[in-house]
Design a protein around this nucleic acid. Structure first.
Lengths: 125, 125
DNA sequence: TTTAACTATATACTTATTGCATATAGTCCT
DNA sequence: AGGACTATATGCAATAAGTATATAGTTAAA
């Protein structure tokens, strides 16, 4: 799978693929974290619980670990069940930087499309 | 399938779902068109042929017609094979406007993420 | 003691998208 | 006839994400 310069999208109720992972990597860049708490922190990026399914979050984390973008370690908890604590790897940091570039490109495309729309709608009235 | 305020993404080599359809609807807003030619016009939105598979384009067009966002009619061609000419419907225009709003929201999210990244990377050096 | 609530993690099933691969067909030129 | 260009379409496979569901630890209430 060659990635090119694309953010990959899909059907049903979906956020941009790398958007979720980009957000997660960024949160982990600041400090280590575990799934359940990361879910709440995603609120900052307008990912409310009703917007992102928690199963997706766990799956993305597992996938990123498989890809060596993050590493995890089980931590016994003084309260409640044990936690799987994630940290970002150097590889993950590089990937994050890369996706940020991609998102910038994406943003430009959106701006271009919006401008084109405004221009088109204006001249058709 | 409730759409909420999400742009839906997916695996493999993917552009944002509604981005493709938004572009197509916008092109058809300006003037009617047929698949093959629309494919070339998409270059304006940085969809080069290597970036979007033409099978996807046809499928998106067929899907939008099923959803009544566009209508099509076969046109005999003086040269070459017959063409399936598409026009946007009023419903399609409404949908286009809606997706433009969604894209604006999407852009804001991207900006927010990028700012957060810059801020985070700066304070970590 | 049992049940409920909260915390924490995980996975099967289903749906949808898109590239790859492939196919059909009309027109023109070699 | 074969190749190139124009024009459209669909099966297969991979991937993502919601729904549904499951397991498990801790604490508090019934």
């Amino acid at each position: 799978m060659t990635e090119k310069n694309s953010l990959l999208c899909n059907g049903k109720h979906h956020e941009m693929e790398r958007f979720i992972e980009t957000c997660l990597l960024l949160l982990l860049y600041k400090e280590t974290g575990y799934g359940y708490a990361l879910m709440e922190q995603l609120n900052y990026f307008d990912f409310s619980e009703g917007r992102l399914n928690i199963s997706t979050l766990y799956r993305r984390l597992r996938k990123m670990e498989k890809e060596e973008l993050v590493v995890s370690a089980w931590e016994e908890s003084s309260k409640g069940p044990k936690k799987r604590i994630y940290s970002i790897t150097d590889k993950g940091k590089e990937k994050l930087a890369k996706w940020i570039q991609i998102l910038k490109s994406r943003k430009s495309k959106i701006v271009k499309l919006i401008d084109k729309y405004d221009e088109t709608v204006k001249t058709s009235h």
